[in-house]
Amino acid sequence: MKNVNRLAPMLVMGAATLYFLVPIWWLLVAASKSRSQFTSTTPLWFADFSLLDNLKELFAYGDGVFLRWMLNSVVYTGGAALLGTLLAAMCGYALAKYRFPGREAIFNIVLSGVLVPATALALPLFLIFSQFQATNTFWSVFLPSLVNPFGVYLARIYATASVPDELLEAARLDGSGEVRTFFTISTKLMFPALVTIFLFHFVAVWNNFLLPLIMLGEEKLFPVTLGLYSWNTQVNQIPELRMLVLTGALVSIVPLVIAFLLLQRFWRNGLGSGAIK
């Protein structure tokens, strides 16, 4: 009886694992094949190993525009997530640790920002930026990506839970300024939470599609998602792009997978904390 009890759950989990990992396995295999073998050999197993050739072709195509897209993505996403996490942390911390008139009003406005879908902002942002002739620039995608209301919400919860008032009081008595206390003491206590906010923000910007799609016209400024999208729309006219799209798709998910693996310890425990409260 006991064995039967264990077998069924393991079967369910095993089948689910196949569902989640086979597509990625397929992508890995597909990206390792030459164009002719991609259509002629069995899709879920390797043929002659041409991954390196595909990579070479990928990074050479269009004067190396793919590498440019990858770097753009890293700067848009990494930069926006780093700075955005800091800004959200400072704001959430202040809302948690100081009493002042208008505190709840500010918090409620920011919180309602969580319910406003980011895609609804893309078009008006485009119109505003075009008033300043600033569309189709790096800043037109980077600056809006800095704002993360959900991060403020999480930071406030975490700061309330993990930074004791007595400690701040003690720092004050020692003559430490408020801002210095934040950077030397509070950020350390909030660090696991900050990593969680960073990850959420990173994925949100990495996935944001409508804003760059509307904002950017020049290929050189594209993030990798938009770049792959634009290649994919041309596959019917330029068939050799197909292998590049597949290889590029594989390359584009590697950084995030690595980031997830390295930061496992944090997202494993941190992700749910926002939901408990």
């Binding site: 989990m13 689910a16 694992t17 989640f20 990992l21 597509p23 990625i24 397929w26 992508l27 994925v203 990495w206 996935n207 599609f209 998602t225 938009l226 792959l228 999208y229 994919n232 799209v245 798709a249 584009s252 998910i253 995030l256 997978v257 980031a259 997830f260 693996l261 496992q264 494993r268």
Partner: peptide
């Protein structure tokens, strides 16, 4: 399992759609 099920989340929507 936790990791295996979470990996697709690392795939951006556009890339996941192209793959599928």
């Amino acid at each position: 399992f936790r990791l295996a099920f979470f990996v697709p989340y690392a795939v951006p929507g556009v890339v996941a759609a192209i793959m599928w």
